[in-house]
Nucleic acid binder design. Sequence first.
DNA 1: ATGCTAAGTTCAAAATCAATACTTAGATTG
DNA 2: CAATCTAAGTATTGATTTTGAACTTAGCAT
Lengths: 161, 161
Amino acid sequence: MSNSLLSSSENPVRSAPVARDACGMAVAANLLGDRWTLLILRETFYGVSRFDDLRADLDIPRGILSARLKALVTAGLLAKSPYRQGRERVRFSYQLTAKGQDLALTLIALMQWGERHLREGPSPVRVADRRTGASLTIALVTPQGHAVAAQDVEFIVLPQS
Amino acid sequence: MSNSLLSSSENPVRSAPVARDACGMAVAANLLGDRWTLLILRETFYGVSRFDDLRADLDIPRGILSARLKALVTAGLLAKSPYRQGRERVRFSYQLTAKGQDLALTLIALMQWGERHLREGPSPVRVADRRTGASLTIALVTPQGHAVAAQDVEFIVLPQS
DNA sequence: ATGCTAAGTTCAAAATCAATACTTAGATTG
DNA sequence: CAATCTAAGTATTGATTTTGAACTTAGCAT
């Protein structure tokens, strides 16, 4: 994959060709880029949804968790809803919205990168095709669903209007 | 895609089924999860490599940039190397290593999510098949390179040894 | 010799985070 | 009915981190 978008680079790239405000990656990094947010989302992907469960599992200060959950609800990644288990009292759960669930591919990409480069030994999680059991990996695919090899991938920065 | 790994969930999941130390996603989130690191990596993907270019482009305090670059070099995502342009003086550039370049899929996944959910209007970047020009998107694929639909994707948490 | 620039380091002030204690509102117990 | 328990927070205070600005260093140019 041509990683430097600006191609040949006989002389160095002095600035990113896409403004930060105009780049989905930068805007997303802005929203998710802090010490806890990705870890909170990981928990919610695993199905952990209650304030105190998140707090205990992550060992995160209550104030910080409270602030991050508020931000994620405001951003529309999580929805806070009352719920009742059996005849216990009403509690609140933070569930991924469709927008939050759509981050799954990103988190799986991150997970697979982490497994490849940051951890040793076999991964404790397998992502598989439910029908065949085949292991699945993240890739770039055509609209027809065919993976394209890294060296055939090209970035094109469109002229900004 | 079954987002709650622990499936059926008539009663709530109280803790993540994979310890943080044992999860590539959590380890990676630990490394990349702060206000600047993802943005710095974005710049390096675009080919911006010099300290002062990064500083100016990101508007990041020098001390922070220095610390983050050190951490990324230590982690093996960036390599610092002297370089000389023309007969100018020797400078330093921070280039992605193979390990860093391998984060491309993750960053593209993040970018495409950001474009879908955080920005309006057309994306300023297209990811395309060099041979056919077709637009490419992130997906989970079988070892044969065939994309699998979200509802056919299954997470399996292996028993920890 | 003087100045200029890239690539940092240093330091004080401001912002953020962490730890602990406190609050609130239902449900449960005595 | 009063006291207690717990989930889900808020408040407060000290520690840490970040920011902004000035300073440093080394190589090259004038």
